[in-house]
Design a protein around this nucleic acid. Structure first.
Lengths: 150, 150
DNA sequence: GGGGTTGGTTTCGAAACGAAACCTACTCGG
DNA sequence: CCGAGTAGGTTTCGTTTCGAAACCAACCCC
């Protein structure tokens, strides 16, 4: 199977990755969450080359994760903003951030970015909870049902 | 910047993706969470070709996400199991699953896999919560602090 | 000793990436 | 009016990675 065909797997993880699983794509989404709107700013902060950033922005717009719209007419200029679908990627990004914070730094004081929860004022590392009972989720207490045909 | 150098970014998301951001890698991790242990089973379920699966397993072992150990001596055979570091990728996988469930199916009844929280017995789609106050997280109520030098 | 099983490595053509150059459609300053 | 600058890309072309198939190795059992 080729990567381009991964969206045909009967698995939501595979299908999600068919949209956000290309190299650099989640870094483009990260920038969008940090407020980046313009092509040149994505280019500067994501770190990929021009043609790759252009390709990823186009694919994210095609997938309705970002919306592209002109913010001036003459000369024509565009901005990219998260859609509702894109904003719902927040848990994916926050989970990657938490895992990277936990495992990818020699000295945790070097970490450049922290999240603060405005409601309680605390620095936080988001955790998963069950929406119905509110309890923190332990993977061992979760059962995957009906997983596959084989 | 080349993708191989993405772990040099001063960003936990980028560094996390330097480990699990290659094509197919999160699908290998998905399989590990579903209980797959052996090479031939990863090969069958992940969908990538042999050399790619071998490469991703090797890189995940190098990154201490999976551990490779023999389960018999003659002939030599190996199994791959999640480490503590690997098990902590659960939120990333669960978030991708939830997003894929939400956005990647025409008919949600076609979704092949559901998660059931054993403690409360309900089918669930995990959500993020603040570990200190227990509230569900709204991205608009989270501030990113000290984001970057520029 | 022939065939089967498991866990890979090698090979080689195709696709994706990456850096630099180029293009377009304007602006502004002189 | 001319030249330089800016924003947002596309094109080109050499390098890297992917992907499918073939091959290899170390055993087992019959």
């Amino acid at each position: 199977m080729k990567w381009r065909e991964v969206d045909r797997q009967q698995c939501s993880v595979a299908r999600a990755l068919s949209v956000v699983g290309d190299r650099w794509t989640m870094l483009v989404v990260r920038e969008a969450f940090l407020g980046t709107r313009r092509f040149e700013d994505f280019l500067e902060h994501v770190g990929a080359s021009r043609n790759i950033v252009a390709d990823r922005l186009r694919k994210l717009v095609d997938a309705d994760v970002l919306a592209r719209r002109p913010y001036q007419d003459a000369p024509p200029r565009y901005e990219y903003k998260l859609t509702a679908k894109g904003r719902e990627l927040y848990p994916v990004l926050a989970s990657l951030l938490a895992w990277g914070d936990r495992w990818m730094w020699e000295d945790e004081n070097d970490r450049p970015l922290h999240l603060v929860h405005d409601r309680c004022g605390q620095r936080m590392s988001p955790q998963l909870a069950c929406p119905c009972c509110g309890e923190a989720i332990d993977p061992r207490e979760v059962t995957a049902v009906g997983e596959r045909a084989s």
